Amino acid sequence: MESLVKTYASGGKRATDEVSLEVADGEFLVLVGPSGCGKTTLLRMVAGLETPDSGRVSIGGRDVTDLPARQRGLSMVFQSYAIFPHMKVRQNIGFGLTMRKVPRDEVERRVKHAAELLHLEEYLDRYPAQLSGGQRQRVAVARAIVVDADVLLMDEPLSNLDALLRLQFRAELKRIVGQLGTTTLYVTHDQAEAMSLGDRVAVMREGKVAQLGTPLAVYDRPADRFVGGFLGSPPMNFLTAHVRDGALAVGDATLPAPDELSTWEGRDVLVGVRAENIQVDASAQPGWVPAQIEVVEPTGAALLLTARLGDEQVKVQAPTTFPAEPDQHVYLRAAPESLRLYDPATGLALAT
């Protein structure tokens, strides 16, 4: 994708704004972002369902910008199942091959192989109405992979499934795509889905790519405040700190500052820290910061604490064995290497 621009209304805001991305052969790239950020528009331009105002789309070194969808060598899985209710599972999976006039024995072989990959063998002679939502979604994926396309496009294919089924199918989808080695472009608004599925993640905001990298790199070192606040549950904490005498003053607390912050002496910076990187203790210890618990939320595997640190509110992840109560006074500590620093004016990460 090279400098793709798409505007839906004349003179209006750009849905995609000079977006350039390269997906490697066999790579699983996830486009993630809030509603209206341009991720589906980008996918539709790759698919040939939208025409870019400017820019180019190339697949395997071939410029396909002006080619219709059917000539691009793609297959696509939509948010809705989009399977034919009057056809059995077998015919639904093989529909694309039949339309391409592939010989019947080859269609049967490929349908059987796709059904095995997606554990659909026993459902081949059922109609969609006789299947669960998860089984119908598997049929839609099987129909997409059976044609052996150059690129597989997926537009929020798991959003119609319930939470448990989504978790199960997510792992199944990663296994299948890994076995096939098909180049995949996947769109989702679910940041947990993006983190677990993608070889790389492109976080989008207002028609642009805010950050591109491996899931762990993007999560650990967000390029700006938006990315840190979007990825992660809970999102990254952001505290306003004053750089004073080579240290970071957050309210009455003092944190060590990196040497690179010497040029920020006397100015404010934003300190970003993940909830799981903050330790909590009921007893005072040297270098630990006093805080007061406001809310305790058990999440099963941990306790999510909302604590007041001076004028700032911070989310802290504590073990379930920690005796936390609302209004309790506690002490917090974050390792200096877990702190991320941002310019409060631009929200961009500081080069430290």
Rank of each mutant, 00 (worst) to 15 (best):
A129V: 13
P128Y: 07
Q137C: 13
Q317V: 11
N237S: 13
L29K: 10
S54W: 01
L67H: 07
P234W: 08
G198A: 06
F78N: 09
L161I: 14
H329N: 14
L261H: 07
E50K: 05
V296K: 04
K101V: 13
A47Q: 02
L167M: 12
T184F: 11
E22L: 07
R90H: 12
K101M: 14
L173Y: 06
F84L: 03
V187T: 07
P103W: 11
L239Q: 10
D53I: 08
V296E: 07
P290S: 09
P34Y: 10
A301M: 12
S196Q: 07
V89D: 07
G48Y: 01
T299I: 08
F169T: 15
G213Q: 04
A142M: 00
S196L: 06
E22N: 10
G73V: 06
R70L: 05
D245T: 01
M236R: 04
L120A: 06
A345M: 13
A249L: 09
Q79S: 02
G94C: 06
Q191G: 09
E18G: 14
L303A: 10
G61H: 04
A163G: 01
E108K: 07
P128L: 09
A334Y: 01
P256W: 10
Q313M: 14
F226Y: 00
A282Q: 13
E156Y: 06
D150T: 05
P290E: 12
V151F: 09
T16L: 10
L212R: 00
D25I: 00
V330D: 03
L49D: 02
F230H: 06
G198T: 00
R109M: 06
D224P: 02
R14Q: 14
V32G: 04
V111C: 09
R104N: 03
Q137T: 12
P256R: 11
D63K: 09
Q168S: 12
A69T: 15
A82F: 11
K174G: 05
Y8V: 10
L97H: 03
T214C: 02
R109S: 07
R100C: 11
Y219L: 12
R200A: 07
K208Y: 02
H119M: 00
H242M: 10
A223W: 02
K6D: 05
G36P: 06
A275P: 01
V296I: 08
V201I: 15
G232M: 09
V289I: 15
A307Q: 06
S132A: 10
L118S: 00
E325M: 08
L164H: 14
F226L: 02
A149V: 00
L270I: 12
K315S: 15
L120W: 05
V46C: 03
G48W: 01
L261M: 11
D25A: 14
P128Q: 08
L43P: 01
R136N: 13
E22Q: 11
M1E: 03
V5K: 04
D63I: 11
Y127R: 14
D220I: 00
R333K: 14
A247S: 12
P85D: 11
P290I: 10
E172M: 09
S283L: 12
D17M: 09
A202R: 00
L270Y: 02
A334L: 06
F322K: 14
P157A: 13
G347W: 08
L131H: 11
